[in-house]
Amino acid sequence: MSEKEPKIIGFCCNWCCYGGADTAGTARMQYPPNVRIIRVMCSGRINPSMVLKAFKEGADGVFVGGCHIGDCHYDAGNYKWRRRAKFVEDLLPEFGIDEERFRFEWISASEGEKFQKTMEEFYNKLKGLGSLQRSFSK
């Protein structure tokens, strides 16, 4: 992977999106290899701090995938996540991070293709934005 390739962290719900990634994989659908997937038990597990931490550690984009609304295994986890996600979108620009570097999507285990497409889109978007240059100098 070249230096300029965007680094993407993908938090994927075990019951859906993680399966979607798997489906994409077994069906040999090509999606960008720059996505590092972290499996979580539900999108409701994700809190904004995890997204912030990912950016701090050098991610150029952060993706969160959960079950379709209505399908969460824990009933309302993805509703909660959706409220948090809106908040994350408001928060990131305050630290100079374009909210387009953050994306969330509902992807079921059978939707390998949707997973592949989403990743490609996100990858292209990030490629267009270039690598994340944070101004905080440290």
């Binding site: 904004p48 701090s49 912030l52 931490k53 950016f55 994350v88 928060l91 305050e94 630290f95 905080f136």
Partner: peptide
């Protein structure tokens, strides 16, 4: 040096 604002005030803001 100063803490990274993303995981300092950023986290507090998110809470």
């Amino acid at each position: 040096t100063a803490p990274d604002p993303l995981t300092f005030q950023g986290v507090r803001l998110s809470h």
